[in-house]
Design a protein around this nucleic acid. Structure first.
Lengths: 207, 207, 207, 207
DNA sequence: AATGAATGAGGTTTCATTCAT
DNA sequence: TATGAATGAAACCTCATTCAT
């Protein structure tokens, strides 16, 4: 590798690091104040940078929100890869594990998730991320339901995708009320109830 | 009735009518553009009034949003009164009816409902309305579940309130994806799937 | 007097009374909040009337201020007529009496007097009233000085008008600091000091 | 000095210069149109800047008025330091000099001084500056009077502070009528009259 | 690449005044 | 004459974005 190449490399990685600092700062700010109530000018200082620098990396407030959500998506995907819903022995354990994972993941990003929903309406790029985040759970879950149906474990008078989505929505919205609005739920009881409802809804044995 | 009284009366009713025109206009504007992407100054023209008039009745965009949601709440309450969930013969029919009603009601106010959730985070007054809207469904549903549990129709190893809320969330969020984001669902199939999932989740007979 | 005439009369006097109610209300409002910080719309309610009525009698906020100051002027003139500065036996007593009168008169109208000065700059009609108010004291005082000069009681190396005005200003400004700004003076000591300074400035015997 | 420090330095001094440009522009505008008849949005253009810039430095019209008066105060204090009232040989010469100085200083800032009095009523911060401006003259003058009283030059049957203030008020108000309202006085005669009245009022020899 | 002062479009808000009843 | 809701010009203020250094 030539010196020039090394310099280019170092510079590229420096760029990447500065960019990441901005994204992390934005995540902090958006999670604290919400997208609409935060000022763009609060982000660069949070990263120890200046306003002008922001525009060397992003062209708008929405664009960096998008970048934040890409990070969130990546994290959620990583978690899903680690604990695959369909590899557990008993379906109900898979479901319980999935619910626990989702609630914990949501908690970290509560505000972001809520704002993402709001912004997805207006901004196609963010919409796409939201769809990907949704599908992290939904497609895998639909696949699992389909398999359980074939194995005769789950009822098969419902469309797997409708069912998967509906049940995923239940958990998502529960998490929203719990962590964003602070509704007075208790986490273990929530996971237990959600798991029972979910399993029974699909006809999966619960004991 | 004295002349002065008549005048006061006429004036009071005129005020009420103008206020209602503004609220209706706001509802139109908010439903079309969303709360954040609409400007306050779009509302008075929509009502055939001038900017200044707005401030004779409301002090901010959030305040009139709140008034709009009060109307929405009233409408939803009226619908619930008409078709009481627990008076139907078969529980599963009550559930189906409730789901149908909710989806149809949501459709009319899709954008508003979504924005209400977003705004409830920041604004206590709106939060209160959201809670009331939520409870229109949740408390009645929890009551029904409790009754079914007592009658041995529904499983009783879950807390009625947790279950009621979780299932209500499922429908609410489904409606949101369906009507706000335009996910390609089909209404009858949605109602059918939601009803089946819901009934089975509670152990209520479905046929 | 015909019935028609009587009716016209009664109506005219009713108009006058309504007008006076507005002027009195304006005086109250202006004295409480100051001209610039008061709203025109606070005046009619203070008089038990409505906004619209205001414009049957006056064409603007400044116009009614002017009317208020005309009243103030009339009151000050009345006081001056009662206690004529030059008719007292000893000049110093006249001066003391004048100072006492002025301070007491100012006190009642402190805010108005201050605002009148500010408004006089922009509004010729108000300027005229201010000049008349000033001259209530100044011309009489100048006349007195001139007489005292002729009688050899007062020094005559100063122009009577300059001297009269300067000394009137001293008292006026003192009253302003005392009553408008609440400077911690004591009224009797103020009158005594102002009288001594004034008399000695003119060479008038003080004992 | 590091590059960063130099940059910070340059930026700080640029900020200071821009701020001063705004203050100077505000002084021009307020002196021309008066505080109440000027609009905030006239100030930045007068400084060759834009509306938004104003709000990087000040939060309101009153706040920048205050900054203007701080400048005025500084100038008046500087003048007083140069020509100390009590160091002249003959008291009457000190008085004449003080009066001349005051009238000339007032002339430059006539409108501002008048507005300052009006605003001091409503705004505590401006009130404080007005008090400081007043005291520039009053305390020094009171000290001088006290000294003259001790030396037997001035009468001592009046409180030095009352006398100092009253006489300062006389000059201040004269200047106000002269320069703000354009009363047809002649400057030299004004100074002469004020000086004679002042000196005689205190019993200070005039020839 | 980093800086942060400057920008100004885009909104909000006030309140003296009008006018239909 | 009295009413008071309606008006809209005229201000105010914010903050995402630009740009000279």
């Amino acid at each position: 590798m030539s010196t020039a190449e090394k310099t280019a490399d170092r510079s590229a990685s420096k760029k990447a690091r500065t960019r990441q600092r901005l994204v992390d700062a934005a995540r902090t700010v958006f999670n604290a104040d919400g997208f609409y109530d935060s000022k763009l000018s609060d982000i660069p200082p949070e990263a120890g940078l200046s306003t002008g620098t922001f525009y060397n990396y992003f062209t708008s407030k929405e664009e960096i929100f998008q970048a934040v959500m890409v990070d969130v998506l990546a994290e959620l995907q990583e978690i899903r890869t680690e604990r695959n819903i369909a590899t557990r022995r008993r379906p109900v354990d898979s479901i319980r594990e999935a619910n626990r994972t989702y609630l914990q993941g949501y908690r970290r990003n509560a505000r972001l998730m809520a704002d993402c929903n709001a912004l997805a309406r207006m901004n196609p790029a963010i919409r796409e991320i939201k769809d990907q985040i949704d599908s992290v759970f939904e497609t895998r879950l639909a696949t699992a339901i389909r398999r359980w149906q074939q194995q005769g474990i789950a009822i098969n008078d419902v469309d797997p995708l409708y069912a998967a989505n509906a049940l995923a929505y239940m958990v998502d919205r529960f998490a929203n009320e719990f962590y964003v609005f602070g509704k007075p739920y208790e986490q273990e009881q929530a996971i237990d109830t959600l798991t029972k409802l979910w399993a029974r809804a699909l006809g999966v044995p619960t004991d």
